[in-house]
């Protein structure tokens, strides 16, 4: 029997909550050839959870699993929101959408009409204007944050283009909320630790994921030689985020590291980590800024 995994109603589902849902269903998702995600009409899903969920669905489909997403009702608000974000534009073709996939893409229809919401965008190395487009949406709300976010998007998208090494699509998105802004870049590639760990100096041999993630953002780890100057991308992202007291969430293969700045530094003392999560390929980095 196909396992059904339910997203609860009346509670906001962000990245952390999504991990809880997936962790409970870990065996069902890994062990079966087909899986159904049941998203109740009253579910409220934040942009980071929506994008990571999209990447996961595409990964499961690429592995040959039969994936169904059941929204239960065509008038489902969450389905309308997903459509507006372009979720269905980027979903793998063999995924079944119930009751039915929307006939028209809300993202295509209303493209760029809402400055606070940028549709989920596929990362394309030929799209030289992508970081600028994403940052422009923020500059209308907060000029300084918009400018800083250009650097964040530029570095993260560049990392995806250079390191992810996969045919699966990677995505970027942002959304402004009443009390803040969330931006996410998600790919289904080798993952930050997958590319970094084998090339790190011996002193990192026994380092935990959380230690490597913190050093990658605070010190700038690189797989290149020391004087190459590489490794400055993530440190610059972290610097910008800290200037705006942004929280940083990094979802890796089976861990999620949440970093909260304390005195302008991301440290172990204010970091927490979810371990042994459902395996998800790639690197999924979220910056969470509160007004």
């Amino acid at each position: 029997m196909m396992p059904r995994i339910s997203f609860p109603e009346d509670v906001w589902i962000g990245g952390d909550k999504l991990e809880g849902i997936l962790w409970k269903a870990k065996e069902a998702i890994q062990g079966k050839e087909s899986v159904c995600f049941e998203i109740l009409p009253g579910s409220k899903i934040l942009i980071d959870a929506a994008v990571i969920f999209l990447s996961l669905i595409n990964q499961l489909s690429a592995e040959g699993k039969l994936v169904t997403i059941d929204f239960q009702n065509e008038d489902s608000e969450v389905m309308g929101y997903f459509n507006r974000m372009g979720f269905f534009d980027h979903i793998a073709p063999h995924v079944t959408i119930l009751p039915a996939k929307p006939l028209f893409s809300g993202a295509q229809l209303y493209k760029k009409s809402n400055k606070g919401l940028v549709e989920i965008v596929r990362i394309d190395e030929d799209d030289a204007e992508l970081p600028g487009r994403l940052a422009d949406a923020l500059e209308t709300k907060d000029k300084k944050l918009g400018k800083a976010s250009f650097t964040i998007f530029g570095e993260l998208i560049d990392n995806v283009i250079r390191h992810s090494s996969t045919k699966l699509d990677a995505f970027a998105a942002l959304q402004t909320y009443k009390n803040g802004i969330m931006v996410i870049v998600s790919d289904s590639g080798k993952g930050l630790l997958g590319t970094l760990r084998p090339k790190l100096p011996k002193k990192y041999k026994d380092a935990t994921d959380i230690e490597i993630v913190i050093d990658a953002f605070e010190k700038g780890l690189t797989r290149h030689r020391k004087k190459s100057g590489h490794g400055c991308g993530l440190t610059t992202c972290a610097r910008k985020a800290k200037q705006f007291h942004g929280k940083l969430h990094v979802r890796l293969a089976d861990t999620r590291v949440n970093l909260v700045p304390a005195d302008d530094v991301y440290t172990h003392d204010t970091a927490y980590c979810f371990l042994e999560l459902l395996p998800v390929k790639g690197t999924h980095i979220t910056f969470d800024f509160k007004y």
Partner: peptide, 18 residues
């Protein structure tokens, strides 16, 4: 110039100075 990131700054100017 209005917006940059660090990787662009490195490859376009710093690398050449070096």
């Amino acid at each position: 110039i209005q917006r940059t990131d660090a990787s662009f700054s490195r490859e376009s100017v710093v690398e050449i100075a070096s």
